[in-house]
Design a binder for these strands. Sequence first.
DNA 1: AAGGCTACTTACCGGCCGTCAAGTTAATAA
DNA 2: TTATTAACTTGACGGCCGGTAAGTAGCCTT
Lengths: 184, 184
Amino acid sequence: MRDQADTRTRIQRVALELFNEKGYEATSLREIAEELGVTKAALYYHFRSKDDIVASLAEGRLGDIQRILDWARGQPQTVETRREIVRRYCDDLYSAHRTAIMRFFERNQTALRDHPTVGKNRELMMDLVALLHAPDASPVTRVKSSLGLFAVHAAAFLPMSEGITDEERKEAALEVAFELVSSE
Amino acid sequence: MRDQADTRTRIQRVALELFNEKGYEATSLREIAEELGVTKAALYYHFRSKDDIVASLAEGRLGDIQRILDWARGQPQTVETRREIVRRYCDDLYSAHRTAIMRFFERNQTALRDHPTVGKNRELMMDLVALLHAPDASPVTRVKSSLGLFAVHAAAFLPMSEGITDEERKEAALEVAFELVSSE
DNA sequence: AAGGCTACTTACCGGCCGTCAAGTTAATAA
DNA sequence: TTATTAACTTGACGGCCGGTAAGTAGCCTT
Protein backbone atom coordinates (compact mmCIF):
# COMPACT_ATOMS: atom_id res chain seq x y z
CA MET A 1 0.00 0.00 0.00
CA ARG A 2 2.84 2.31 0.81
CA ASP A 3 4.41 1.15 -2.43
CA GLN A 4 1.33 1.78 -4.45
CA ALA A 5 0.93 5.35 -3.26
CA ASP A 6 4.62 5.96 -3.74
CA THR A 7 4.78 4.70 -7.30
CA ARG A 8 1.57 6.46 -8.25
CA THR A 9 3.01 9.71 -6.99
CA ARG A 10 6.30 9.12 -8.73
CA ILE A 11 4.52 8.47 -12.00
CA GLN A 12 2.58 11.70 -11.62
CA ARG A 13 5.69 13.67 -10.84
CA VAL A 14 7.71 12.30 -13.73
CA ALA A 15 4.81 12.56 -16.17
CA LEU A 16 4.20 16.19 -15.26
CA GLU A 17 7.87 16.96 -15.65
CA LEU A 18 8.09 15.39 -19.09
CA PHE A 19 4.77 16.83 -20.22
CA ASN A 20 6.06 20.31 -19.38
CA GLU A 21 9.38 19.64 -21.01
CA LYS A 22 8.26 18.15 -24.29
CA GLY A 23 4.51 18.57 -24.46
CA TYR A 24 1.70 16.14 -23.75
CA GLU A 25 1.44 14.46 -27.14
CA ALA A 26 5.18 14.31 -27.65
CA THR A 27 5.69 12.50 -24.35
CA SER A 28 5.16 8.77 -24.67
CA LEU A 29 4.32 6.41 -21.88
CA ARG A 30 7.47 4.53 -22.80
CA GLU A 31 9.56 7.57 -21.85
CA ILE A 32 7.76 8.08 -18.58
CA ALA A 33 8.20 4.44 -17.67
CA GLU A 34 11.84 4.44 -18.71
CA GLU A 35 12.56 7.48 -16.56
CA LEU A 36 11.09 5.60 -13.62
CA GLY A 37 12.94 2.38 -14.38
CA VAL A 38 9.78 0.37 -14.99
CA THR A 39 7.99 -0.80 -18.11
CA LYS A 40 5.22 0.94 -19.95
CA ALA A 41 2.70 -1.65 -18.86
CA ALA A 42 3.38 -0.89 -15.21
CA LEU A 43 1.77 2.49 -15.73
CA TYR A 44 -1.41 0.69 -16.69
CA TYR A 45 -1.48 -0.97 -13.36
CA HIS A 46 -1.70 2.41 -11.64
CA PHE A 47 -3.64 4.36 -14.25
CA ARG A 48 -6.31 3.31 -16.69
CA SER A 49 -4.89 5.36 -19.54
CA LYS A 50 -2.70 8.31 -20.44
CA ASP A 51 -5.71 10.57 -20.03
CA ASP A 52 -6.23 9.18 -16.57
CA ILE A 53 -2.81 10.46 -15.53
CA VAL A 54 -3.86 13.90 -16.70
CA ALA A 55 -7.11 13.65 -14.76
CA SER A 56 -5.21 12.78 -11.61
CA LEU A 57 -2.98 15.83 -12.11
CA ALA A 58 -6.00 18.08 -12.46
CA GLU A 59 -7.69 17.07 -9.23
CA GLY A 60 -5.67 19.24 -6.90
CA ARG A 61 -5.91 22.33 -9.04
CA LEU A 62 -9.65 22.02 -9.63
CA GLY A 63 -10.09 21.58 -5.91
CA ASP A 64 -8.10 24.75 -5.23
CA ILE A 65 -10.25 26.86 -7.51
CA GLN A 66 -13.48 25.32 -6.27
CA ARG A 67 -12.49 26.12 -2.72
CA ILE A 68 -11.92 29.78 -3.57
CA LEU A 69 -15.26 29.88 -5.37
CA ASP A 70 -17.09 28.36 -2.42
CA TRP A 71 -15.56 30.87 -0.07
CA ALA A 72 -16.15 33.86 -2.34
CA ARG A 73 -19.82 33.08 -2.84
CA GLY A 74 -20.42 33.54 0.86
CA GLN A 75 -18.83 36.97 0.87
CA PRO A 76 -20.24 40.40 0.02
CA GLN A 77 -19.33 41.59 -3.46
CA THR A 78 -16.91 44.30 -2.50
CA VAL A 79 -13.53 45.41 -3.75
CA GLU A 80 -12.00 43.82 -0.66
CA THR A 81 -13.51 40.46 -1.53
CA ARG A 82 -12.21 40.70 -5.08
CA ARG A 83 -8.74 41.45 -3.81
CA GLU A 84 -8.93 38.51 -1.45
CA ILE A 85 -9.96 36.24 -4.33
CA VAL A 86 -6.90 37.31 -6.25
CA ARG A 87 -4.70 36.91 -3.20
CA ARG A 88 -5.94 33.40 -2.53
CA TYR A 89 -5.57 32.39 -6.13
CA CYS A 90 -2.05 33.73 -6.05
CA ASP A 91 -1.20 31.94 -2.82
CA ASP A 92 -2.45 28.61 -4.08
CA LEU A 93 -0.40 29.08 -7.19
CA TYR A 94 3.03 29.88 -5.97
CA SER A 95 4.27 26.48 -4.99
CA ALA A 96 6.54 24.78 -7.49
CA HIS A 97 4.21 21.83 -7.92
CA ARG A 98 1.05 23.84 -8.43
CA THR A 99 2.81 26.15 -10.86
CA ALA A 100 3.99 23.17 -12.87
CA ILE A 101 0.49 21.76 -13.03
CA MET A 102 -0.93 25.09 -14.11
CA ARG A 103 1.72 25.52 -16.74
CA PHE A 104 0.93 22.07 -18.04
CA PHE A 105 -2.75 22.81 -18.48
CA GLU A 106 -2.06 26.27 -19.86
CA ARG A 107 0.53 25.20 -22.38
CA ASN A 108 -1.25 22.07 -23.50
CA GLN A 109 -4.82 23.28 -23.55
CA THR A 110 -5.17 22.80 -27.28
CA ALA A 111 -3.76 19.29 -27.19
CA LEU A 112 -6.05 18.52 -24.26
CA ARG A 113 -9.09 20.24 -25.67
CA ASP A 114 -11.23 17.12 -25.48
CA HIS A 115 -10.18 16.34 -21.94
CA PRO A 116 -13.02 16.91 -19.49
CA THR A 117 -10.80 18.48 -16.85
CA VAL A 118 -9.75 21.25 -19.21
CA GLY A 119 -13.34 22.26 -19.85
CA LYS A 120 -14.01 22.09 -16.12
CA ASN A 121 -10.98 24.25 -15.43
CA ARG A 122 -12.03 26.94 -17.87
CA GLU A 123 -15.53 26.83 -16.46
CA LEU A 124 -14.29 27.41 -12.94
CA MET A 125 -11.93 30.16 -14.07
CA MET A 126 -14.76 31.97 -15.79
CA ASP A 127 -16.90 31.63 -12.68
CA LEU A 128 -14.06 33.15 -10.73
CA VAL A 129 -13.67 36.02 -13.18
CA ALA A 130 -17.41 36.68 -12.93
CA LEU A 131 -16.91 37.38 -9.23
CA LEU A 132 -14.23 39.95 -9.98
CA HIS A 133 -16.59 42.58 -11.32
CA ALA A 134 -20.18 43.77 -10.90
CA PRO A 135 -22.73 41.85 -12.99
CA ASP A 136 -23.56 44.99 -14.94
CA ALA A 137 -19.95 46.10 -15.41
CA SER A 138 -18.86 47.62 -18.70
CA PRO A 139 -17.07 45.43 -21.26
CA VAL A 140 -13.80 47.19 -20.59
CA THR A 141 -14.12 46.53 -16.87
CA ARG A 142 -14.91 42.89 -17.54
CA VAL A 143 -11.88 42.43 -19.77
CA LYS A 144 -9.81 44.16 -17.12
CA SER A 145 -10.78 41.74 -14.40
CA SER A 146 -10.06 38.85 -16.72
CA LEU A 147 -6.64 40.28 -17.30
CA GLY A 148 -6.25 40.73 -13.56
CA LEU A 149 -6.59 37.04 -12.85
CA PHE A 150 -4.59 36.27 -15.94
CA ALA A 151 -1.75 38.49 -14.77
CA VAL A 152 -1.29 36.32 -11.69
CA HIS A 153 -1.55 33.31 -13.89
CA ALA A 154 0.93 34.58 -16.46
CA ALA A 155 3.48 36.01 -14.08
CA ALA A 156 4.00 32.58 -12.59
CA PHE A 157 5.75 31.40 -15.73
CA LEU A 158 6.64 34.46 -17.72
CA PRO A 159 9.68 34.03 -19.98
CA MET A 160 11.32 36.82 -18.04
CA SER A 161 14.84 37.97 -17.97
CA GLU A 162 16.96 36.64 -15.15
CA GLY A 163 17.61 38.20 -11.80
CA ILE A 164 14.02 38.33 -10.69
CA THR A 165 12.99 36.22 -7.73
CA ASP A 166 9.70 34.40 -7.34
CA GLU A 167 8.87 36.78 -4.54
CA GLU A 168 9.32 39.83 -6.75
CA ARG A 169 7.30 38.21 -9.48
CA LYS A 170 4.49 37.44 -7.08
CA GLU A 171 4.58 40.93 -5.62
CA ALA A 172 4.38 42.54 -9.05
CA ALA A 173 1.61 40.22 -10.20
CA LEU A 174 -0.44 40.96 -7.10
CA GLU A 175 0.06 44.69 -7.45
CA VAL A 176 -1.10 44.61 -11.06
CA ALA A 177 -4.01 42.29 -10.34
CA PHE A 178 -5.20 44.37 -7.37
CA GLU A 179 -5.36 47.45 -9.50
CA LEU A 180 -7.23 45.66 -12.27
CA VAL A 181 -9.99 44.31 -10.02
CA SER A 182 -10.41 47.46 -7.99
CA SER A 183 -12.25 49.58 -10.55
CA GLU A 184 -15.85 50.52 -9.83
CA MET B 1 2.52 29.81 -60.89
CA ARG B 2 -0.79 31.22 -59.85
CA ASP B 3 -1.77 27.71 -58.87
CA GLN B 4 1.31 27.14 -56.83
CA ALA B 5 0.86 30.31 -54.79
CA ASP B 6 -2.81 29.55 -54.34
CA THR B 7 -2.35 26.01 -53.10
CA ARG B 8 0.53 26.99 -50.84
CA THR B 9 -1.65 29.64 -49.24
CA ARG B 10 -4.57 27.26 -48.93
CA ILE B 11 -2.36 24.70 -47.22
CA GLN B 12 -1.15 27.33 -44.77
CA ARG B 13 -4.68 28.48 -44.02
CA VAL B 14 -6.07 24.98 -43.48
CA ALA B 15 -3.05 23.85 -41.48
CA LEU B 16 -3.28 26.86 -39.17
CA GLU B 17 -6.96 26.26 -38.68
CA LEU B 18 -6.51 22.61 -37.78
CA PHE B 19 -3.46 23.27 -35.61
CA ASN B 20 -5.50 25.74 -33.59
CA GLU B 21 -8.44 23.42 -33.41
CA LYS B 22 -6.72 20.19 -32.41
CA GLY B 23 -3.13 21.07 -31.60
CA TYR B 24 0.02 20.73 -33.66
CA GLU B 25 0.97 17.17 -32.81
CA ALA B 26 -2.59 15.91 -33.00
CA THR B 27 -3.05 17.27 -36.50
CA SER B 28 -1.76 14.89 -39.14
CA LEU B 29 -0.72 15.83 -42.64
CA ARG B 30 -3.32 13.37 -43.87
CA GLU B 31 -6.07 15.47 -42.28
CA ILE B 32 -4.76 18.69 -43.73
CA ALA B 33 -4.56 17.16 -47.18
CA GLU B 34 -8.00 15.59 -46.89
CA GLU B 35 -9.53 18.91 -45.93
CA LEU B 36 -8.01 20.38 -49.08
CA GLY B 37 -9.09 17.49 -51.28
CA VAL B 38 -5.55 16.44 -52.14
CA THR B 39 -3.23 13.70 -50.96
CA LYS B 40 -0.68 13.87 -48.21
CA ALA B 41 2.18 13.69 -50.68
CA ALA B 42 0.97 16.84 -52.40
CA LEU B 43 1.89 18.79 -49.30
CA TYR B 44 5.44 17.60 -49.74
CA TYR B 45 5.52 19.21 -53.13
CA HIS B 46 4.87 22.61 -51.54
CA PHE B 47 6.64 22.17 -48.22
CA ARG B 48 9.69 20.18 -47.24
CA SER B 49 8.18 18.93 -44.00
CA LYS B 50 5.55 19.55 -41.38
CA ASP B 51 8.02 21.83 -39.60
CA ASP B 52 8.43 23.79 -42.78
CA ILE B 53 4.74 24.67 -42.76
CA VAL B 54 5.18 26.05 -39.26
CA ALA B 55 8.19 28.06 -40.35
CA SER B 56 6.20 29.59 -43.18
CA LEU B 57 3.47 30.56 -40.73
CA ALA B 58 5.98 32.26 -38.48
CA GLU B 59 7.52 34.50 -41.10
CA GLY B 60 4.89 37.23 -41.08
CA ARG B 61 4.74 37.44 -37.33
CA LEU B 62 8.50 37.56 -36.83
CA GLY B 63 8.65 40.31 -39.45
CA ASP B 64 6.00 42.30 -37.61
CA ILE B 65 7.89 42.21 -34.34
CA GLN B 66 11.22 42.93 -35.99
CA ARG B 67 9.74 45.99 -37.66
CA ILE B 68 8.54 47.36 -34.35
CA LEU B 69 11.95 46.69 -32.83
CA ASP B 70 13.76 48.46 -35.65
CA TRP B 71 11.52 51.47 -35.31
CA ALA B 72 11.72 51.63 -31.53
CA ARG B 73 15.50 51.51 -31.48
CA GLY B 74 15.60 54.80 -33.36
CA GLN B 75 13.37 56.50 -30.83
CA PRO B 76 14.12 58.18 -27.50
CA GLN B 77 13.35 56.00 -24.49
CA THR B 78 10.33 57.87 -23.23
CA VAL B 79 6.95 56.87 -21.93
CA GLU B 80 5.46 58.00 -25.25
CA THR B 81 7.73 55.64 -27.16
CA ARG B 82 6.76 52.78 -24.90
CA ARG B 83 3.12 53.48 -25.43
CA GLU B 84 3.65 53.61 -29.16
CA ILE B 85 5.40 50.22 -29.05
CA VAL B 86 2.40 48.73 -27.32
CA ARG B 87 0.04 50.42 -29.73
CA ARG B 88 1.89 49.11 -32.77
CA TYR B 89 2.10 45.62 -31.35
CA CYS B 90 -1.60 45.77 -30.69
CA ASP B 91 -2.40 47.05 -34.19
CA ASP B 92 -0.39 44.34 -35.88
CA LEU B 93 -2.18 41.79 -33.78
CA TYR B 94 -5.81 42.51 -34.24
CA SER B 95 -6.44 40.98 -37.61
CA ALA B 96 -8.08 37.56 -37.61
CA HIS B 97 -5.18 35.92 -39.39
CA ARG B 98 -2.45 37.40 -37.19
CA THR B 99 -4.37 36.52 -34.07
CA ALA B 100 -4.72 32.95 -35.26
CA ILE B 101 -1.00 32.70 -35.89
CA MET B 102 -0.19 34.13 -32.50
CA ARG B 103 -2.60 31.81 -30.78
CA PHE B 104 -1.00 28.90 -32.57
CA PHE B 105 2.47 29.74 -31.35
CA GLU B 106 1.24 30.60 -27.89
CA ARG B 107 -0.83 27.47 -27.40
CA ASN B 108 1.66 25.10 -28.95
CA GLN B 109 4.89 26.51 -27.62
CA THR B 110 5.71 23.40 -25.65
CA ALA B 111 5.06 21.09 -28.58
CA LEU B 112 7.14 23.40 -30.78
CA ARG B 113 9.88 23.96 -28.25
CA ASP B 114 12.58 22.67 -30.59
CA HIS B 115 11.37 24.71 -33.51
CA PRO B 116 13.79 27.54 -34.34
CA THR B 117 11.04 30.09 -34.97
CA VAL B 118 9.72 29.68 -31.45
CA GLY B 119 13.06 30.54 -29.94
CA LYS B 120 13.37 33.46 -32.32
CA ASN B 121 9.91 34.66 -31.35
CA ARG B 122 10.66 34.58 -27.64
CA GLU B 123 13.94 36.33 -28.26
CA LEU B 124 12.27 39.16 -30.12
CA MET B 125 9.54 39.44 -27.53
CA MET B 126 12.10 39.76 -24.77
CA ASP B 127 13.93 42.42 -26.75
CA LEU B 128 10.66 44.24 -27.06
CA VAL B 129 9.96 43.97 -23.33
CA ALA B 130 13.44 45.32 -22.62
CA LEU B 131 12.44 48.51 -24.41
CA LEU B 132 9.38 48.91 -22.23
CA HIS B 133 11.29 49.91 -19.11
CA ALA B 134 14.47 51.67 -18.10
CA PRO B 135 17.57 49.42 -18.03
CA ASP B 136 17.92 49.96 -14.30
CA ALA B 137 14.26 49.50 -13.50
CA SER B 138 13.21 47.64 -10.37
CA PRO B 139 12.18 43.98 -10.65
CA VAL B 140 8.56 44.87 -10.04
CA THR B 141 8.63 47.44 -12.83
CA ARG B 142 10.19 44.93 -15.15
CA VAL B 143 7.57 42.30 -14.43
CA LYS B 144 4.93 44.96 -14.94
CA SER B 145 6.10 45.85 -18.43
CA SER B 146 6.22 42.18 -19.31
CA LEU B 147 2.65 41.88 -18.16
CA GLY B 148 1.79 44.96 -20.19
CA LEU B 149 2.82 43.41 -23.44
CA PHE B 150 1.34 40.13 -22.31
CA ALA B 151 -1.99 41.79 -21.62
CA VAL B 152 -2.30 42.80 -25.25
CA HIS B 153 -1.24 39.34 -26.19
CA ALA B 154 -3.64 37.60 -23.85
CA ALA B 155 -6.66 39.80 -24.46
CA ALA B 156 -6.63 38.80 -28.11
CA PHE B 157 -7.79 35.32 -27.25
CA LEU B 158 -9.09 35.40 -23.73
CA PRO B 159 -11.74 32.76 -22.98
CA MET B 160 -14.10 35.59 -22.14
CA SER B 161 -17.80 35.62 -21.68
CA GLU B 162 -19.84 36.63 -24.70
CA GLY B 163 -21.10 40.06 -25.60
CA ILE B 164 -17.72 41.68 -25.85
CA THR B 165 -16.59 42.95 -29.21
CA ASP B 166 -13.06 42.85 -30.55
CA GLU B 167 -13.00 46.61 -30.35
CA GLU B 168 -13.84 46.61 -26.64
CA ARG B 169 -11.27 43.91 -26.01
CA LYS B 170 -8.62 45.90 -27.81
CA GLU B 171 -9.56 49.09 -26.02
CA ALA B 172 -9.35 47.42 -22.64
CA ALA B 173 -6.07 45.70 -23.45
CA LEU B 174 -4.52 48.97 -24.58
CA GLU B 175 -5.73 50.81 -21.51
CA VAL B 176 -4.22 48.19 -19.22
CA ALA B 177 -1.00 47.97 -21.19
CA PHE B 178 -0.55 51.75 -21.29
CA GLU B 179 -0.82 51.96 -17.56
CA LEU B 180 1.65 49.13 -17.05
CA VAL B 181 4.38 50.63 -19.21
CA SER B 182 3.95 54.17 -17.98
CA SER B 183 5.55 53.82 -14.58
CA GLU B 184 8.76 55.69 -13.90
C1' DA C 1 5.74 16.16 -82.41
C1' DA C 2 9.00 15.96 -78.93
C1' DG C 3 10.80 17.30 -74.63
C1' DG C 4 10.32 19.34 -70.35
C1' DC C 5 8.16 21.32 -66.52
C1' DT C 6 4.31 21.77 -62.96
C1' DA C 7 1.40 19.83 -59.90
C1' DC C 8 0.15 16.43 -58.43
C1' DT C 9 -1.17 10.70 -57.28
C1' DT C 10 -0.25 5.87 -55.98
C1' DA C 11 1.85 2.91 -53.16
C1' DC C 12 4.77 2.02 -49.89
C1' DC C 13 8.26 2.31 -45.72
C1' DG C 14 10.01 1.82 -40.89
C1' DG C 15 8.82 3.28 -36.57
C1' DC C 16 6.60 4.52 -32.60
C1' DC C 17 2.15 4.92 -30.45
C1' DG C 18 -1.44 3.59 -26.68
C1' DT C 19 -3.29 -0.49 -25.04
C1' DC C 20 -3.89 -5.16 -23.37
C1' DA C 21 -3.69 -10.22 -22.24
C1' DA C 22 -1.07 -13.31 -19.95
C1' DG C 23 2.69 -14.67 -17.18
C1' DT C 24 5.92 -13.88 -13.06
C1' DT C 25 7.66 -12.74 -8.51
C1' DA C 26 7.55 -11.54 -3.79
C1' DA C 27 5.00 -10.72 0.23
C1' DT C 28 1.22 -11.52 3.12
C1' DA C 29 -2.79 -14.05 5.14
C1' DA C 30 -5.06 -18.55 6.59
C1' DT D 1 1.97 -24.89 3.65
C1' DT D 2 -1.06 -23.27 0.68
C1' DA D 3 -3.78 -19.53 -1.41
C1' DT D 4 -4.30 -14.95 -2.49
C1' DT D 5 -3.05 -10.59 -3.67
C1' DA D 6 -0.08 -6.53 -5.14
C1' DA D 7 3.03 -4.99 -8.27
C1' DC D 8 4.84 -5.61 -11.67
C1' DT D 9 7.15 -7.78 -16.74
C1' DT D 10 6.98 -9.94 -21.34
C1' DG D 11 5.42 -9.76 -25.58
C1' DA D 12 2.43 -8.69 -28.82
C1' DC D 13 -1.57 -5.96 -31.33
C1' DG D 14 -3.44 -2.87 -34.92
C1' DG D 15 -3.04 1.64 -36.32
C1' DC D 16 -1.56 5.91 -37.57
C1' DC D 17 2.44 8.82 -38.16
C1' DG D 18 5.88 11.67 -41.10
C1' DG D 19 8.26 10.90 -45.05
C1' DT D 20 9.66 9.18 -49.87
C1' DA D 21 10.28 7.04 -54.53
C1' DA D 22 8.31 6.55 -58.68
C1' DG D 23 4.80 7.36 -61.88
C1' DT D 24 1.58 10.51 -64.64
C1' DA D 25 -1.74 13.87 -66.70
C1' DG D 26 -1.80 18.27 -68.65
C1' DC D 27 0.26 22.25 -70.24
C1' DC D 28 4.09 25.19 -72.50
C1' DT D 29 7.84 25.73 -75.23
C1' DT D 30 10.66 24.80 -79.24
